[in-house]
Amino acid sequence: MKATFQVPSITCNHCVDKIEKFVGEIEGVSFIDVSVEKKSVVVEFDAPATQDLIKEALLDAGQEVV
């Protein structure tokens, strides 16, 4: 499964690193693409990962998800 999250609070590479760390810890996540320019995060994943778990990880990383 693939999901795109709009994350307007992404401003720098530190944000990218933190997002990759938090989302990458979720079992089932196979790909993460964070774009500072587009302020988006694209995640490819399989169970047990879910969109809700990914959104929670983004929030835990200090990001706003819309």
Rank of each mutant, 00 (worst) to 15 (best):
M1R: 11
M1S: 11
K2N: 06
K2C: 14
A3Q: 07
A3H: 08
A3I: 14
A3K: 06
T4P: 05
F5K: 00
F5H: 04
Q6L: 14
Q6E: 11
Q6S: 12
Q6V: 13
Q6H: 15
Q6F: 15
Q6D: 11
V7A: 01
V7H: 03
P8T: 10
P8E: 10
P8F: 06
P8G: 10
S9Q: 06
S9R: 00
S9N: 10
I10Q: 03
I10E: 04
I10L: 11
I10T: 04
I10Y: 03
I10D: 04
T11P: 12
T11A: 09
T11M: 15
T11E: 10
T11S: 10
T11C: 14
T11I: 11
C12T: 12
C12P: 08
C12R: 08
C12V: 08
N13C: 14
N13H: 15
H14Q: 15
H14Y: 11
H14A: 15
H14T: 15
H14L: 15
C15R: 06
V16R: 09
V16L: 07
V16C: 08
V16M: 06
V16H: 05
V16K: 13
D17K: 14
D17T: 15
K18A: 10
K18M: 11
K18T: 09
K18Y: 07
I19D: 02
I19C: 03
I19L: 04
I19H: 00
I19G: 02
E20L: 15
K21P: 02
K21E: 06
F22Y: 12
F22K: 09
F22T: 08
F22L: 12
F22D: 03
F22C: 04
F22A: 13
V23Q: 00
V23T: 01
V23G: 02
G24T: 07
G24W: 12
G24Y: 12
E25L: 14
I26E: 00
I26A: 02
I26M: 05
I26T: 03
E27N: 09
E27I: 11
E27V: 12
E27F: 08
G28V: 03
G28C: 03
G28A: 03
V29R: 00
S30H: 12
S30G: 06
F31P: 02
F31C: 09
I32T: 03
I32L: 06
I32W: 01
D33C: 15
D33T: 12
D33L: 11
V34C: 12
V34K: 01
V34P: 03
S35D: 12
V36F: 08
V36I: 14
E37Q: 10
E37W: 05
K38S: 11
K38P: 02
K38I: 04
K38F: 14
K38V: 05
K39S: 07
K39A: 06
K39T: 05
K39C: 13
S40I: 14
S40D: 04
S40M: 15
V41Q: 02
V42F: 13
V42R: 08
V42E: 07
V42G: 04
V42C: 08
V43L: 03
V43F: 00
E44C: 15
E44V: 13
E44L: 14
F45K: 00
F45T: 01
D46T: 12
D46A: 12
D46G: 10
D46H: 10
A47F: 14
P48R: 02
P48K: 01
P48V: 02
P48H: 01
A49K: 01
T50L: 03
T50A: 03
T50S: 06
T50F: 03
T50W: 03
T50V: 03
Q51S: 11
Q51Y: 15
Q51K: 14
D52A: 12
D52R: 11
L53A: 13
L53D: 05
L53C: 04
L53R: 13
L53S: 08
L53V: 07
I54G: 02
K55A: 08
K55E: 08
K55R: 14
E56Q: 15
E56S: 13
E56T: 12
A57Q: 02
A57H: 02
A57I: 04
L58V: 03
L58K: 01
L59Q: 09
L59A: 08
L59D: 04
D60G: 10
D60Q: 14
D60R: 14
D60M: 14
D60C: 12
D60K: 15
A61S: 06
A61E: 02
A61V: 04
A61H: 04
A61I: 07
G62H: 05
G62S: 06
G62W: 12
Q63A: 09
Q63C: 15
Q63W: 14
Q63H: 15
E64H: 10
E64Y: 11
E64P: 06
E64K: 11
E64Q: 12
E64F: 12
V65C: 15
V65T: 05
